[in-house]
């Protein structure tokens, strides 16, 4: 019985310590401003790996999600004779919810896991330690560029996701199902507000980008430096960041649209 309580206390303390280390890492990575001349090429490289290479999966899934929304919305709305509203349904659900959340989930799977594995392997092969040996701060050289790259590319990917999704919905609704395209776009423009919907979606994506990259970088930096430890850390990255994104999405939605 006492053993059980002790193990509970141990788990709680180590979780708390992990949170503390994560916060410390965040502050150090953000405060550690590398010299901009040295930082820029590193940042470009990470933006390429994290942002550009995620573009394909984002565009393809955005197009298909938009098309599915158009099709489903049409089959439901046609019963009420208001199939013109499919435009606003597709645009609102994409811009407010689906684009930030699905982009963040895909990003966690595509880029977050790669970040964790890369940093974890660096730690396991003692590359991080050798950086410290030659007097280069690994937080500046390794962590900070990756962190900023995730933070910058997530809103860009989210906005691209929205636009491609709306076009996918328009192709299905206007071209295939024959909704008059004037009322499709006019209803959408009537219903979507730039500040209320578009900017709130972008704010959501900025928060998600921050959280997902933070978790990915921390899990890699904090992993047990063995092959098993890296695999566990990668799994934890995907699981924790997905849960964090979905939970935070509810809170943000309640704050932004719930009139709480």
């Amino acid at each position: 019985m006492l053993d059980w309580i002790q193990s509970l206390g141990h788990t709680g303390l180590s979780r708390l310590a992990a949170f503390g280390r994560a916060g410390q890492l965040l502050v150090q990575a953000l405060v550690a401003k590398p010299a901009p001349v040295m930082m820029f090429p590193l940042l470009v490289k990470q933006l390429y790996f994290v942002g550009v290479l995620s573009l394909i999966i984002i565009v393809v899934s955005g197009a298909f999600i938009g098309m599915v929304l158009g099709l489903q919305g049409y089959t439901i709305l046609v019963d009420y004779g208001s199939e013109q509203a499919v435009g606003q349904m597709v645009a609102l659900s994409l811009v407010r919810e689906l684009a930030p959340v699905v982009t963040a989930l895909l990003f966690a799977g595509r880029a977050g896991s790669a970040l964790t594995a890369e940093i974890g392997l660096m730690k396991a092969t003692e590359q991080l330690a050798s950086f410290e040996m030659i007097g280069v701060d690994p937080l500046r050289r390794i962590i900070a560029p990756r962190f900023w790259a995730g933070f910058i590319s997530m809103p860009i990917l989210t906005v691209i996701f929205s636009v491609v999704g709306v076009w996918g919905g328009a192709i299905v609704a206007v071209e295939w199902l024959g909704i008059y395209d004037g009322s499709f776009w006019a209803n959408m423009q009537q219903a979507v507000d730039f500040r209320e919907d578009v900017l709130n979606g972008v704010i959501k994506s900025i928060v998600f980008g921050f959280v997902v990259t933070w978790i990915a970088v921390f899990e890699g930096y904090d992993c047990v430096p063995t092959s098993e430890g890296i695999s566990q850390a990668t799994t934890r990255t995907v699981v924790f960041s997905s849960l964090a994104v979905l939970g935070l999405d509810f809170i943000l939605t309640a704050l932004m649209f719930g009139e709480l």
């Binding site: 573009l55 811009v95 906005v159 691209i160 636009v163 709306v166």
Partner: peptide, 19 residues
């Protein structure tokens, strides 16, 4: 190109989708 695409997408969102 990624940055440009993101910026263009934001413009499309502003002008074409939110009117």
């Amino acid at each position: 190109f990624l940055m440009l695409a993101g910026f263009l997408a934001l413009v499309v969102l502003a002008l074409n989708i939110s009117g």
